[in-house]
């Protein structure tokens, strides 16, 4: 078990990941975190189990399928899908991120944003944005996300703020109402995944994330 992660996403966000109500960028954050954090993975699988129980409960609304649905499905049944090799990353980027980048760190298209910091936007739906950040050792994190909710997860190196130390797998949830200046640890250049939704205020995250506008 990996017990080295000390800063986790909230239970509410993990629940929303299981229920399928988060925007894509936040799903990417959670999938990446779960790839590194067995504790949160177990929690999400437990929420999935509740979803299964809900689907299976006698009281759950059912909707009859059309006549002939079974036979039309039987006609579509085919050979089993080939067994894919395990999807597991040995690199810096967990597999869900590699799917968006097209490879590990060497495939990232960095763009300089000043002070030695680089970033790479990842292609997700517009409801929220996701990007990789590269912060030189000892440099300050770029001032970002102050209009909304932001989650930052360390992938390489570490950063420190006034109170805490964040290393690989740790997730910081930034509250824009609090002034703070995280700084990359001097030990190594720091690479992070940052997701943000400018329309979301931290305190209102959960109710608003669960609102129907994400279900277009």
């Amino acid at each position: 078990m990996n017990d080295s992660i000390h800063h986790h996403p909230s239970e509410e966000i993990l629940f929303a990941y299981s229920a399928g109500t988060l925007p894509e960028a936040f799903n990417l954050m959670i999938a990446s975190h779960l790839s590194l954090c067995d504790h949160c993975r177990a929690l999400v699988e437990s929420f999935d189990a509740v979803g299964g129980a809900v689907i299976d409960a006698a009281s759950t609304p059912t909707a009859a399928l059309s006549d002939g649905a079974l036979s039309s499905v039987l006609d579509r049944l085919d050979a089993p899908a080939p067994l894919a090799p395990p999807r597991r990353s040995a690199g810096v980027l967990p597999s869900p991120l590699q799917d968006y980048v097209g490879g590990d760190l060497e495939a990232v298209s960095w763009r300089p944003v000043g002070m030695g910091v680089r970033q790479a936007l990842l292609p997700t739906s517009a409801a929220a944005s996701a990007r990789l950040l590269y912060i030189p050792a000892g440099a300050a994190m770029p001032d970002h996300g102050h209009h909304g909710m932001e989650m930052t997860m360390v992938l390489q190196g570490a950063f420190v703020d006034e109170d805490d130390y964040f290393a690989r797998g740790d997730v910081e949830i930034a509250d824009p109402s609090v002034e703070h200046t995280p700084i990359a640890d001097v030990g190594a250049d720091c690479i992070c995944l940052a997701v943000t939704d400018a329309r979301l205020r931290f305190k209102g995250l959960v109710p608003r994330l669960l609102q129907p506008f994400f279900r277009i």
Partner: peptide
Amino acid sequence: ASVATWIFTIARNRRIDILRKENRPEPE
């Protein structure tokens, strides 16, 4: 997972796919 749980996860991912036209990132 129970069979019901497994089916729930498949259905949920399909829902995201069809209602939002989005991929759902899964952990490795």
